[in-house]
Simulated assay, not measured.
Amino acid sequence: MKILAIAGSNSEVSINKQLVTYATTLFENAEVEIVDMNDFEMPIYKHQREVENGVPQEAKDFAAKIDNADVLLISLSEHNGTYSTAFKNVFDWTSRIKERAVWNEVPMLLMATAPGARGGLGVLEAAEKRFPLHGGNIVDTFTLPFFNDNFDKSAQKISNEEKDSELKDKIKKISAIETILEK
């Protein structure tokens, strides 16, 4: 199974990258690639740029990674209730590639975490509404509130047993779907 893990942040200390990285360790016998959004930095999307220069190669490379994955793990950082600018720009450019859906119906576990009580729920709600319109096959969602209290940074894992168990159950669910698809 090939897992593409995406943290929707360009921060070098992203808590969403820490969460999605931990989630990848819960799969057995998986080939994992963790995406760094900084590798897909492009000019801010503008229609005139697209007309003049086409879709940047970085967007095509991002799309190719999605196409080569069996499962997507996406943990979105929340900026003012929605996607980070870095993630949104990659999403926008990728959506401009002709004759493709951004997420290409690859099964995904959509996640978010934040320091506060809602744990990135606003960005999850936005993505749950938007992603299916772009080929998003959302199998399940997971949010981790109060990241600093519920994630052990030294052990790089969820320290809240209830939330850890919830994530493990969701990983089993998406793993089972992928196993069915392989048959």
Score class of each variant (00 low, 15 high):
2 K>Y: 13
3 I>G: 12
4 L>N: 13
6 I>P: 12
7 A>Q: 07
9 S>P: 13
14 S>H: 11
18 Q>F: 13
24 T>I: 11
27 F>S: 08
28 E>G: 12
31 E>V: 09
31 E>N: 10
32 V>R: 13
32 V>G: 09
34 I>G: 11
37 M>R: 09
40 F>H: 14
40 F>M: 15
42 M>W: 04
44 I>V: 13
48 Q>V: 04
51 V>T: 08
54 G>K: 06
58 E>H: 06
59 A>G: 00
59 A>K: 03
61 D>P: 10
62 F>R: 01
67 D>P: 03
76 L>I: 02
76 L>G: 10
77 S>A: 15
77 S>N: 09
84 S>M: 10
87 F>I: 10
87 F>S: 09
99 E>Q: 12
111 M>I: 03
112 A>T: 03
112 A>L: 07
113 T>I: 09
118 R>P: 00
120 G>H: 01
120 G>L: 05
122 G>Q: 12
122 G>T: 03
127 A>C: 08
128 E>W: 00
136 G>R: 13
142 F>E: 10
146 F>R: 12
148 N>T: 06
151 F>M: 02
151 F>Y: 04
154 S>E: 15
156 Q>I: 09
166 E>F: 01
167 L>N: 03
169 D>S: 12
172 K>P: 03
176 A>D: 02
180 I>C: 00
180 I>Q: 07
181 L>H: 02
